[in-house]
Design a protein around this nucleic acid. Structure first.
Length: 489
RNA sequence: CGGGACGUAGCGCAGUCCGGUAGCGCACCUGAAUGGGGUUCAGGGGGUCGCGGGUUCAAAUCCCGCCGUCCCGACCA
């Protein structure tokens, strides 16, 4: 009976485990529209916290929010040849409006480069108008063949930054700077370590000069691309006539960047930290950080325990000592639900800390504090509770990042590896494999065909092996780069 | 679009082979007791059996067609 309530174990079927966690933790639902999902309040609360944190980081780097239309004239996409070629198969197109056939079809934005740079062209005249740093929070549509909750849906929520600069180098710096912002966010807030680096040409954004990405490892050792940043060069500015008069007096085309990250991060969070009891939300992202579960056997005890619980709740504002903002505390005072049932429910939903208080505790002026990630239980003094909770949340946030990083490193292979061994690893549990690469598309494609593994990124210096492989993993020729190989979502 | 599985109450399923007018668990509502790791008992509400057609006295069940979903590939954040 109890077994029925257990989640599918991850080793048997990670996909099934993931779906079950997402659905049962009430993060999302399948929508009546094929390939779409409905984000439930629990899931949206996490997204809101991600959004707020990222938005602050964007503001701090000088970006402003704006909003552009969901419909883009089809001709706009055709102005940049590579871009339309890349996105054409994934477009949703509106052909009718107000009961009449439209003269020109409207594309539901799959990304907003074209309409945004069309507007930028009107806004920019002088080098003094640059850099132009804009971000938009929006939903976009890509007609994917296969979809998956949070990770790949037809419609998804994201943030897309778009900038224009006077020189290539400034654009390049911006693209790399925003990649760094993503990495900081993912490590500090999601407690999810990422490998950053350059994408190979085959995985480059359609229309970009260079694409950078953050790659995170999930518990089935597959990679998730959690955020990307592109140096778009001058392709779009030439297509949309985005010109400015330089100090020299000459008219020059601007250099663009774009960068985005999505609700996919919620999926990545689930697959990074979740366990067989459900989601584990890093404290900074948890809509509720602490849930108080009162325990009582009689009306008298109930009154007593709840009074104390309310006292704790109302002293929340005094607990701001070591952290910004208020502690987000919820008292689960539902009658008729046994404490054990409440424990399981809040664990499934991933609430970081649980405080149990019952008559036995009150007698000792203490409570029992339980950590979601380690399930470690310990008594805490109710007089110093605020401090204790703050410290525990900070520690949990840090520990989760360390644990995730250790797990990733334990499943990473650096240095020499034969191709046979590589195939064996990819056929089995998978891994992050850092291996030499000659830069040839033929090798890349052959490896993908034979192992399903792809180049996630050509990693930044700090992720490169001390003794980087000298030869290509596949053909044995001299290596021109070290690539991070993994199977990906 | 190829290969598999499936569509019956909010969710998970049984019933389909062998036709007889719909059931189980969870959830939900009412009442009482219970309460330190998934409570118990009693009562109750809820279903055009994916859609359309056919066979039959009678279809969730058999036949034909369609639609949709999930998983595995190709595509992708």
């Amino acid at each position: 009976m109890a077994d029925e309530k257990k989640l599918t174990t991850r080793k048997e079927d990670f996909s099934a485990w993931y779906n079950e966690v997402v659905l049962r933790a009430e993060l999302a639902d399948y929508s009546p529209v094929r390939g779409c999902m409905v984000i439930r309040p629990n899931g949206y609360g996490i997204w809101e916290r991600m959004q707020r944190a990222l938005d602050d980081m964007f503001k701090a780097t000088g970006h402003q929010n704006a909003y552009f239309p969901i419909f883009i004239p089809e001709s706009f996409l055709h102005k940049e040849a590579e871009h339309v070629e890349g996105f054409a198969p994934q477009l949703a197109v509106v052909t009718h409006g107000g009961g009449k056939k439209l003269e020109e079809p409207l594309v539901v934005r799959p990304t907003s480069e074209t309409i945004i740079y069309a507007m930028f062209a009107k806004w920019v005249q002088s080098h003094r108008d640059l850099p132009l740093l804009i971000n938009q929070w929006a939903n976009v549509v890509r007609w994917e063949m296969r979809t998956r909750l949070f990770l790949r849906t037809l419609e998804f929520l994201w943030q897309e930054g778009h900038t224009a600069h006077a020189t290539h180098d400034e654009a390049e710096e911006e693209a790399r700077r925003m990649l760094g912002v993503y990495r900081d966010f993912m490590e500090a807030w999601i407690a999810m370590p990422v490998v950053t680096g350059l994408k190979s040409d085959s995985e480059k954004f359609a229309g970009a000069l260079r694409t950078y990405a953050c790659e995170a490892m999930m518990q089935d050792n597959k990679a998730v691309q959690a955020g990307t940043s592109h140096n778009l060069g001058q392709g779009f500015s030439k297509a949309f006539d985005l010109k400015f008069q330089a100090e020299s007096g000459n008219l020059e085309y601007a250099w663009n960047t774009s960068w985005g990250t999505t609700t996919r991060m919620i999926g990545a969070m689930v697959m990074t930290h979740g366990d067989d009891n459900g989601v584990v939300i890093p404290p900074l992202l948890a809509p509720i950080e602490v849930v108080i579960v009162p325990i009582y056997r009689s009306d008298d005890e109930r009154a007593q325990v709840l009074e104390k619980a309310h006292a704790i709740m109302s002293s929340v504002h005094e607990w701001e000592r070591r952290r910004p903002g208020r502690l987000r505390v919820h008292l689960d005072d539902r009658d008729g639900v046994k404490p054990g049932a409440k424990y399981y429910e809040w664990e499934l939903k991933g609430i970081p800390l649980r405080l149990e208080i019952g008559p036995r505790d009150l007698a000792k002026n203490q409570g029992v504090l339980v950590r979601r990630d380690t399930r470690e239980k310990r008594p805490v003094n109710l007089d110093t509770l605020g401090e204790d909770l703050s410290d525990a949340l900070i520690k949990m946030q840090d520990d989760m990042l360390v644990a995730a990083r250790e797990r990733r490193e334990a499943n990473s292979i650096r240095g020499k590896i034969t191709y046979d061994k590589f195939r064996e690893v990819m056929d089995g549990d998978g891994a992050f494999v850092y291996a030499g690469w000659c830069g040839g598309r033929a090798c890349e494609d052959a490896i993908k065909d034979e192992t399903k593994a792809t180049i996630r990124v050509l990693p930044d210096e700090e992720f490169r092996s001390a003794e980087a492989p000298k030869t290509c993993l596949k053909c044995g020729k001299e290596a021109t780069a070290e690539a991070l190989w993994a199977k990906a979502y």
